[in-house]
Design a protein around this nucleic acid. Sequence first.
RNA 1: GCCCGCUUGGUGUAGAGGUUAUCAUGCAGGAUUGUCAUUCCUGCGACCCGGGUUCAAUUCCCGGAGUGGGCGCCA
Length: 479
Amino acid sequence: MLDVLNPLRPNMTTYVATAYRTHTLGEIQSDGAKLVGQEVTVAGFMEANRGKGAICFVDLRDGTGKTQVFLKADNVGDESLDMVQRMTRESTLQFIGTVSQKRPPKAKEGEPVPPPAYEVVANSVTVIARAEAPLPLGVTDTVHVALDTRLDNRFLDLRRAHVAAMFRLRGKVLQYGREALINEGFFETHTPKIVATATEGGTDLFPMQYFDTPAYLNQSPQLFKQLCMSGGLERVFEVGPAFRAEKHDTYRHLNEFISFDMECSWATDGDVMGVLERMIHHMWDSVSKDEESQQHIITINQYRATQGEEPVEVIVPELPFPRVSYCDAIDIIKKKGGKIEWGDDIDAENSDLLAEDLPQFYFLPQWPMELKPFYIHHVEGEIGSTGKQLSRGFDLNFGRDELTSGGQREHRMDVLIENLKDMELDPEEFEFYIAGFRHGVPPHAGWGLGVERILMKLTGAKNVRETVLFPRDRKRICP
RNA sequence: GCCCGCUUGGUGUAGAGGUUAUCAUGCAGGAUUGUCAUUCCUGCGACCCGGGUUCAAUUCCCGGAGUGGGCGCCA
């Protein structure tokens, strides 16, 4: 019969598996006072063992925390004690024992007495899996490990506290993003990742075989979420993978990344910029208030301290974010001595100049039409200093890095077809998309946010690969 | 695709045309210890591959592979 709820803890409202452990190690620490004297079964990875004589201490770690297990030959027998003393680090062990308060460490005079801590005095031990030695990377060692070594052995890298904290935070950030959009009347949906045509042109796609038909992995949900607008769904969002076959090799690019996309009918670029900044504000605000999220930040900072790095700070951004139009950005860059002309894209060097005064979030609205994709909307008469047409397309940057690109979309079919021709794309190849406009589409706007990039900004990661479990880049497809 | 670095024990590093290749971490053994960033002692373990220069190359040169950074492009 299934234990629907753990009988030992009737106040728990979530299912607790009890086949391999009756208590988590986190519970031993948090509920230790109540558990003293009680027999428990605990399990986890052996972080370290100390003691070669008739006693031995094991630092045991599971997903919830750490607890020391105390072994005496009198309790577990000579054979078991010897086995544990010879056990390799990171082996998976299970102990049955009694919870007791640890003997307090010898506090020096004048120093505060530490709060009571709890341990498990073992009566028996079971080896679930012995870890092979040596480890390809040290889980608790403070020696620096190269990213490539870490990614080759990601399963072990994930056992490191600050790495696990990163991925738990990633889950939190996605949760907060969803909350923010759902609260504004959006609902989550999904679009296909296998497509028949080059969706936006330009970007290189990964070709694949779809039965007898050539196909591609989709670079973006863009055109499909617009079709949702044609369908009257009005407010949708999607969190899903996007694939780009570009041979880039930088700290901020991946060939598979997660795009947080939204699309909104009866809205302008300004409207969806508001949705975006409120969502990001909610993410940062929630992380700063949520106890677990704060603990993850602390864990990351503890590691950073061992590497001589500055701690990351979660600074909740003020609303509204600064808005620096493309035209103003060009002026600012020129004043700072950057080489740029109206109509140029803002390259990395010039982004650094902008970031000098804008180190955090800021919008770059109203790009020239010719720098934005064919589906971006423009209003006749909105022109730049050189008389060229502006668009309703915007970027969201954090310092030098682009996090989001978005805009109001072109809903007028005739203009859309003209735009395609202007950008030397063949309207016939976009027939599946244009068909969605034949019967009318509400004016709409939206954006796509790079999840990994925003996580870099939150956690201080210097490389986007750190924020992905198993990153896919130019050279890495395994594991 | 272009430009610039790097490649030394399991991990991360120092370093030199020649003798025993540094340090940290790790691992093994020992001493001490209800330990807790333990401490102490002893030991183990490495110069990416191919070619060239040289009496001698892990070190210099060329090529390859791998890897890191920058750029373009983008999220």
